[in-house]
Design a protein around this nucleic acid. Structure first.
Length: 598
RNA sequence: UGCCCGAUGGUGUAACGGUAGCACAGCAGACUCUGGAUCUGUUUGUCAUGGUUCAAAUCCAUGUCGGGCAGCCA
């Protein structure tokens, strides 16, 4: 698929300002950001915002953005997610920021190095182009477990961390509450030697899950609860998707994240607002270790909230698990894979991210903004095709049985280079059910008994007779085709109020078409903690049997089509050759139905 | 009621002490062999109250409202 080029406008926001300031104040050789998802679910459009931010900043500063699996919790993570995440990121940045996508050589781990005369540990991204591309893989926080362990040991030696024997429940009670100080653990003042011994035995597997933790020794009375001796390591006798059975203790997010950033040489660690209160801990850990190289800086921004969609991985997983949708890549899902299967170009998502901007304000973005981005892209690149979703038969009484009138149709009026194709008009054609009305309301321009309409690219027809079955349902419309109104014919310029789409019944090919709509009936499905099931849109998927013009037989999933006057469609990725399925990405703007309703 | 963060039209976002702008949505019109696209015009805004200043969306204070934080999740 040929994505449209990224918008030329260079975005500006408070984070980019900070990065620029950091560059101008010196000390930074190059900018390194990172995108660090936990592989416990599929990426969604909220992640797309973060990806565009992180890769965008890397790109604008000739830096790098590392893709890193933040995989420190073996009980929630899975290889399936690792693979989908990499595929989704690659798809989203392809043709835009792939040159700054930071990956490492397969199997590479941090190296011991010397930084200004001091020992250091570091892992840089592989240089793109050096060595085969297929030998690269994302970074994994779990690759740093040995280094992380050594960092923890150093903290213990400095008296800044201790092994605590409190049970989970006791730890909870000792922590206090936001408005009430915590209480110091009775194990807080163990000697460094004892802590070291205990910590090594934790690692050796001598203790059961939950029996001990390694905690930072900070301040149980801090008004910031994350500074109240936070847990650094917990015991989990569980197999890890990336490290296997090598470990039975696993670092917590706060400990692993800042140090992973450091190891990779990240300069700006951009995350969402809920980590704002963690920033003092992020800084505390890094400062406490007397590290040799410059420290990364954490900056927070507001996550995306989009109307009529849910964004939490937990709730998306729920939709999948309860089979409300067919999977993570169901075209109704706000996941990147769902949007891709739906037919949304990556460039639309990037443009959307650019348009919504980046701030610390927790707002709700109107889906119309996304829809506009998609329509703008697709209008430019989609090939126009004729398809009838709810067919009504038209018999052109003055065209002979077996006769065929060749008509030239434009492939894309927005792109003259896309050329023309021939469609055939025959005695019988399908038109859209909605394009005929027996008793139309005022200002209805299309076909009515005795009325005229143009068959697009063909000629004007006049409805002479409505044939019904016994129940009164319309069987066929018998019409006269004024062939002198075809392109190039004397009356080609004759005006009628409307031109409608059609397909020759003799040439049409059948297809199943999925008409998708928003998944929820409420703009804020998660508001007030309501049950998602109570706000599901029963019409989020309608399936129809349609007639398509024959050229659509050759469609492949990467193609983008506009079915004229209907919307944008693509061949479903799971469509079988013998049974074509098309997905509606988004309908065309429809000011008629709006006027009618209003 | 502890700490942190935020507040600009309906929505999102600019303006970095000096004319409140842009996009989306809305409305009106033009054009059209897509009731699409395009084009034109247009309605609506600085949370409140004080203070500093020649000048405040911007700086300060207080208040109001909203969000986040008490996982051995990230």
């Amino acid at each position: 698929m040929s994505d449209t080029p990224a918008s030329p406008a260079v975005p500006s926001d408070f984070i980019r300002d900070m990065v620029t300031d950091d560059i101008n104040s010196g000390g930074l050789r190059s900018i390194v950001t990172r995108f660090p998802p936990e592989p416990n679910g599929y990426l969604h459009i909220g992640h797309a915002k973060s990806i565009c931010l992180n890769f965008g900043i890397a790109r604008e500063n000739h830096g790098r953005c590392n893709l890193r699996m933040d995989d420190t919790n073996p009980t929630k993570e899975d290889m399936e997610y690792v693979e989908s995440i990499e595929a989704d990121v690659r798809w989203l940045v392809a043709g835009w920021a792939d040159q700054v996508l930071g990956l490492k050589r397969r199997g590479a781990v941090p190296v011991q190095a010397d930084a200004g005369g001091r020992p250091d540990t570091h892992l840089a991204a592989a240089i793109p182009g050096s060595g085969a591309r297929h030998q690269l893989e994302p970074f994994f926080a779990s690759d740093y477990f040995p280094q992380l362990f050594e960092f923890a040991v150093r903290l213990v030696e400095k008296g800044l961390a201790y092994v605590c024997d409190l049970s989970p429940e006791e730890t909870d009670q000792y922590r206090g509450a936001p408005d009430r100080p915590g209480k110091e653990s009775p194990f807080r003042n163990r000697t460094a030697a004892e802590n070291l011994d205990l910590f090594r035995r934790m690692r050796a597997g001598e203790f059961p899950d939950g029996s001990r933790t390694l905690r930072a020794r900070i301040d149980m009375a801090s008004p910031n609860v994350w500074l109240r001796d936070p847990i650094l390591y917990r015991i989990r006798h569980a197999e890890h998707h990336h490290t296997g059975k090598s470990w039975c203790i696993y670092p917590m997010y706060d400990f692993a994240h800042c140090l992973s950033d450091y190891i990779e040489g990240v300069t700006h660690s951009i995350c969402t607002l809920e980590f704002e209160v963690h920033r003092p801990l992020y800084d505390w850990i890094l400062k406490s270790l007397d590290l040799a190289r410059p420290l990364p800086r954490q900056i927070e921004f507001a996550r995306l909230n989009l109307g009529y969609t849910v964004m939490s991985k937990r709730k998306l997983l729920q939709l999948v698990a309860e089979r409300v949708v067919t999977g993570w890549d169901d075209p109704r899902m706000p996941t990147i894979s769902g949007l891709r299967r739906r037919g949304v170009p990556a460039s639309s998502l990037r443009e959307f991210a650019r348009q919504i901007g980046v701030t610390k304000f927790n707002g709700l973005t109107d889906v119309a903004v996304l829809e506009k981005c998609i329509r703008d892209d697709l209008n430019r690149l989609a090939l126009r095709r004729l398809a009838v979703l709810r067919p009504v038969k038209v018999v052109l009484t003055n065209i002979g049985m077996g006769d065929s009138v060749a008509c030239e149709a434009v492939n894309n009026p927005e792109d003259p280079a896309s050329g023309h194709r021939t469609v055939h008009l025959t005695r019988e054609a399908w038109i859209e059910h909605e394009d005929f009305m027996e008793n139309p309301p005022p200002k209805y321009f299309r076909l009515r008994p005795g009325g005229e309409v143009r068959l697009k690219y063909a000629c004007i027809i006049r409805c002479d007779e409505v044939v019904r079955d016994a129940s009164g349902a319309v069987l066929e419309l018998r019409c006269f085709a004024d062939l002198t109104t075809r392109t190039g014919q004397p009356n080609a310029g004759r005006k009628v109020k409307a031109a409608i789409h059609w397909v020759s019944a003799a040439h049409a090919i059948p297809a199943t078409v999925h008409l998708y709509d928003r998944l929820f009936t409420e703009e804020e499905p998660e508001k007030d903690g309501r049950d998602l099931k109570s706000v599901l849109n029963p019409d989020s998927l309608r399936t129809v049997q349609a007639w398509l013009e024959p050229s659509l037989a050759e469609a492949v999933p990467a193609d983008r089509f506009q079915f004229e006057r209907l919307g944008y469609f693509c061949l479903d990725a799971a469509s079988a050759p013998g049974h074509r399925v098309f997905n509606r990405t988004i309908p065309l703007k429809d000011s008629w139905s709006k006027a009618k309703a209003g």
